[in-house]
């Protein structure tokens, strides 16, 4: 006879999945763009696309969370960097600071390129802002200490991606979340979706023939990351099958759901893995398969977080 009650939660739903997805994707997009610019070859278009869309994604992520807060003005306490001194054990405090500083360093890193790009220079308000003394000074300083600024942004980006997993890991009652695999899974997924996103951008908007080697390299990295994600998910499957009733019930929820099996594992991971693997080994004559793979990976990235939020099971002894 079972006196326990097993239930999923209804507090953190689709909106936190959006927060985690856009947070991880935005941060990893910025990091990859800057690392490419610093260590592969200078790539103004990639940096501007990466920085601006990354900042927008982080903005969406933060706005979704902010919109769902109960007491909006109290958010000021977590925006203060000193929060890390007073609440060093709270991952949301770290995540907020990572996201905030990622946006700051990400924007500064893009300034030198934006200041010489006609599109931004001729934009009504943006053009004026780019000519202000403070932006000119920031831009010149950034050129002087390019890698320092780039690494500040990258460290905050990696921190954000890892944080999205650490946040869920800090909830001890749910076996699916409270394990060391979650930060790893979410970090791998964040960088995989970011590579996929940049591949979509490079195949649709940037379309530079000299980027062939870069696209090939990004596709290779994405294949490796998707394969890693599949291995981590397989270990999650094994982990949840025994050990705790909470984990077992999460496994039942996930692995009996066609959205998870076909939607996420099938179309979000396996299909893009095969498409990108073919692209890496033999290449494609057109750009469509690469773009399709990227879109599928992005869809899968959201689905992973969505299903993870809904499949966490609490066990109550009443």
């Amino acid at each position: 006879m079972d006196t326990m009650t097993y239930t999923t939660q209804s507090l953190w739903t689709w909106w936190i999945a959006m927060y985690l997805f856009f947070g991880g994707l935005g941060a990893a997009t910025l990091s990859i763009s800057f690392l490419t610019d610093m260590y592969c070859r200078p790539h103004p278009k990639l940096v501007m696309w990466g920085a601006l869309s990354g900042v927008v994604m982080l903005g969406i992520s933060s706005a979704v969370l902010f919109g769902h807060l109960l007491h909006h003005t109290a958010v000021i306490h977590v925006l203060n960097p000193l929060v890390l001194v007073f609440q060093p054990h709270a991952w949301i405090a770290w995540g907020t600071q990572f996201i905030l500083w990622m946006m700051v360093w990400g924007t500064i890193y893009a300034f030198p390129y934006m200041r010489v790009t006609p599109l931004f220079v001729n934009m009504p308000l943006v053009g004026k802002i780019l000519q202000t003394k403070i932006v000119v000074w920031l831009s010149d300083t950034c050129m002087k200490y390019r890698r320092v600024v780039g690494w500040f942004a990258t460290i905050n980006g990696i921190g954000t991606a890892v944080y999205t997993g650490l946040l869920l890991q800090s909830f001890p009652a749910v076996a699916l979340w409270h394990n060391p695999g979650v930060p790893l899974l979410f970090t791998v997924s964040a960088f995989s979706t970011a590579f996929a996103y940049l591949l979509v951008i490079m195949n649709t908007f940037i379309r530079d023939e000299t980027d062939q080697d870069l696209r090939h390299r990004f596709e290779l990295f994405d294949v490796i990351l998707i394969a890693t994600e599949l291995v981590i998910l397989f270990s999650f499957f094994n982990f949840t099958l025994s050990g705790s009733e909470s984990g077992y019930r999460s496994a039942q929820l996930l692995w009996h759901d066609m959205g998870w099996l076909v939607g996420f594992i099938g179309f979000g991971l396996l299909v893009p893995f095969l498409l990108e693997l073919k692209g890496v080994i033999r290449g494609w004559s057109g750009r469509f398969p690469s773009v399709a793979a990227g879109v599928l990976v992005l869809m899968g990235g959201y689905m992973l977080r969505h299903y993870f939020m809904y499949a966490g099971v609490y066990a109550y002894p009443w």
Partner: peptide, 28 residues
């Protein structure tokens, strides 16, 4: 430990309290 603002705190006598003024309502 998950409270980002310090709204949740523990008194020396063991009672766990919430300061509503500090709580931003993230539900963590």
């Amino acid at each position: 430990t998950v409270c980002p603002t310090g709204a949740t705190y523990k008194r020396p006598d063991g009672i766990v309290m919430i300061n509503p003024e500090l709580c931003m309502g993230c539900r963590a």
